[in-house]
């Protein structure tokens, strides 16, 4: 555990908490892509299956359980409790276009051809693109509430901080995982345009509004 990794994990946790609080306090999930949230739930479930097989640390296990639970709670709020506020019409990204390539890629490029390893690899690939339906939703509506922007910023920062963590680990421990690094780079690149808008607009108190 190094400072970049810890900061990344905390940023990830913060993102999830911001999202849950936003939905709970406003009693609405307007502007949030249910499809991205479904993809994240799949990511957590397929990656954290190792809760049952491998013990790494108490920290690790607790974080995994929190991510799965928070993801489930988010889906419950979006698809059950505040279903009426869910922005169906704008959330029209076809997730099979992400799921199918990720399954195929995980079957071809993986560290080991075992069920657990392929599921882990699939979850890494899927996570890298899981935000696309959300970014698509923002681009369709042309704007995002500030709180949604904070959520996206925290969520994007998490993988960017992991990139620093991987550089650190490569130098300090000669540890590296090319699959995680490649997917992490892709994931971070997808947020770059948003990061730019966040820094130039949201931090200056303006609403995140895309040029018409």
């Amino acid at each position: 555990m190094n400072i970049f990794r810890l900061a990344g994990d905390l940023s990830h946790l913060l993102a999830i908490i911001i999202l849950l609080l936003k939905i709970w306090k406003t009693r609405s999930c307007a502007g949030i892509s249910g499809k991205s949230q479904v993809l994240f739930a799949i990511v957590y479930l397929t990656r954290y299956l190792d809760l049952f097989t491998t013990y790494i640390s108490l920290y690790n296990s607790i974080m995994k359980i929190v991510f799965i639970a928070a993801s489930g709670a988010t889906l419950y709020l979006m698809y059950v409790k505040f279903k009426a506020t869910y922005d169906h019409n704008h959330d029209s990204f076809r997730i099979e276009f992400l799921l199918i390539p990720c399954v195929i890629l995980a079957l071809i490029i993986n560290h080991d051809f075992t069920v657990m390893e392929i599921l882990w690899t699939f979850s890494i690939y899927l996570e890298s693109v899981a935000i696309l339906p959300q970014l698509f939703l923002v681009s369709k509506t042309g704007e995002a509430e500030s709180i949604t922007s904070h959520y996206l910023f925290a969520l994007g920062s998490y993988r960017a901080l992991y990139l620093l963590n991987w550089i650190y680990r490569y130098m300090a421990e000669s540890h590296y995982d090319l699959i995680a690094i490649f997917a992490g780079v892709v994931q971070t690149i997808l947020y770059c345009d948003f990061f730019y808008l966040y820094i130039t607009k949201v931090l200056k108190g303006k609403k995140l509004q895309l040029p018409a």
Binding site: H111, D177, A180
Partner: peptide, 10 residues
């Protein structure tokens, strides 16, 4: 070496 004998990250 690339570790695939247990992923220790989240």
């Amino acid at each position: 070496s690339p570790s695939h004998s247990g992923h220790d990250e989240l």
